[in-house]
């Protein structure tokens, strides 16, 4: 419980700090006031001129949406990673293991380089989501044999199809005009900078649905950890559960990637960190994973805006540069043994 409360408070604090961070001068207190003012009707400071329209706009229309998207993306990718790791029983699994990001990459890059008309007039996020779904469906069908979804075949099919799709993306990128390359890179590395409130709905709904599904199946997820036969003997329909987990994780990942690009590292590392902190029992680690993922990307986004200001660096670079050393330190701690890191 303590971990959850700490993470939740840290998320709230980051939200406020984010609101106060940027070129337009807004104090931390004013940032908090703007947020509260939009949520609670009729508060005095929204009317008496103590907040300028510029400040209001900066906080509510630019900073808050991107921070919320960072939070949603972090939570979604971390949850998807945890589910994928449990589903294929492999600590190296991550949300993109089934080629989701490569598929989204093809969709998005096709729109950037060939124009929206080339993919039937879809907007970039729509094309990215469709690409993610297509890749997942292909891997799922390729990995299925005699109605059985074998984890190893699934991982290998995902890696192979991912390479194929990445090749398409690379070709499109290399043959396009130079001015498009920056947009392509920004999508592939992931970014939340252009977020609007409207974009939050789909990832938020996906996150809510998959969270409910995962928590409702937390015990069955634990059973998967002790092997397919044991799980079957405990009454878990292993094949069906595995299929549903993979689909749920991929839909969630697709919904996130479509708006934020292929932000890496979160989905692999946050679930492991959660296991080190609270153990591998999904009834404890899933919620820590979700909150931890949200916090991690929200902090990363604040850093992405500030460390090289006024230039913004892609959030994927920050997650890796900040996250990797922390994670490397963590896996050498004694507690890492609890998360299976002695083998």
């Amino acid at each position: 419980m303590g971990v959850h409360v700490a993470l939740f408070l840290a998320i709230l604090a980051t939200l406020v700090v984010s609101g106060a961070t940027g070129p337009a001068d807004v104090s931390t207190a004013d940032a908090a006031r703007v947020v509260v003012g939009h949520l609670v009707p009729d508060v005095s400071w929204m009317r008496d001129g103590s907040i300028t329209p510029l400040q209001d706009q900066a906080v509510w229309q630019f900073r808050l949406p991107r921070t919320l998207l960072a939070g949603l993306a972090g939570a979604g990718l971390a949850l998807a990673g945890a589910l994928m790791q449990a589903a294929v029983r492999n600590p190296l699994a991550e949300p993109y293991v089934l080629g989701v990001s490569a598929g989204a990459g093809v969709g998005a890059v096709a729109v950037i380089t060939l124009g929206s008309a080339a993919v039937g007039g879809l907007p970039l996020s729509g094309a990215a989501f469709l690409g993610a779904l297509g890749a997942t469906a292909a891997v799922y069908l390729l990995a299925r044999q005699h109605g059985v979804l074998a984890p190893t075949r699934m991982i290998l099919a995902g890696v192979a199809l991912g390479s194929l799709l990445s090749a398409v993306t690379s070709y499109l990128t290399l043959t396009t005009e130079a001015q498009n390359v920056f947009s392509v890179l920004f999508f592939l590395l992931g970014s939340v900078s252009a977020a609007t409130m409207d974009q939050l709905a789909v990832p938020a709904a996906a996150l809510a649905a998959v969270t409910l599904y995962a928590l409702a199946n937390a015990r069955a997820l634990n059973a998967l950890l002790v092997g397919d036969e044991n799980a079957t003997a405990l009454g878990v329909g292993v094949n069906r559960l595995r299929g549903r987990l993979v689909i749920a994780a991929s839909l969630l990942t697709g919904a996130v990637v479509a708006v934020s690009g292929g932000i890496g590292f979160v989905g692999l590392v946050v679930p492991h960190t959660a296991r080190i902190l609270v153990g591998a029992d999904h009834r404890r680690m899933l919620t820590v994973t979700i909150l931890g993922g949200a916090l991690f990307l929200m902090v990363a986004d604040v850093l992405a805006r500030t460390v090289a200001a006024p230039t913004e660096i892609p959030i994927g670079i920050v997650t890796a540069v900040v996250g990797a050393p922390c994670f490397l330190w963590l896996i050498r701690q004694g507690r890492a043994a609890r998360a299976g890191m002695l083998r």
Binding site: Q85, A86, R89, N90, P91, R219, A220, N222, A223, L225, V226, G227, D228, E229, N230, A233, L234, G235, V236, R275, G279, A280, D281, A337, R338, A339, G340
Partner: peptide, 21 residues
């Protein structure tokens, strides 16, 4: 069963409580 794998470690009590699943 003869199968005894756990890639992510559960504590003994967690393993036993799986029997309540």
């Amino acid at each position: 069963t003869q199968e005894s794998t756990a890639d992510f470690d559960l504590d003994v009590l967690d393993i036993v409580l799986l029997g309540r699943l």
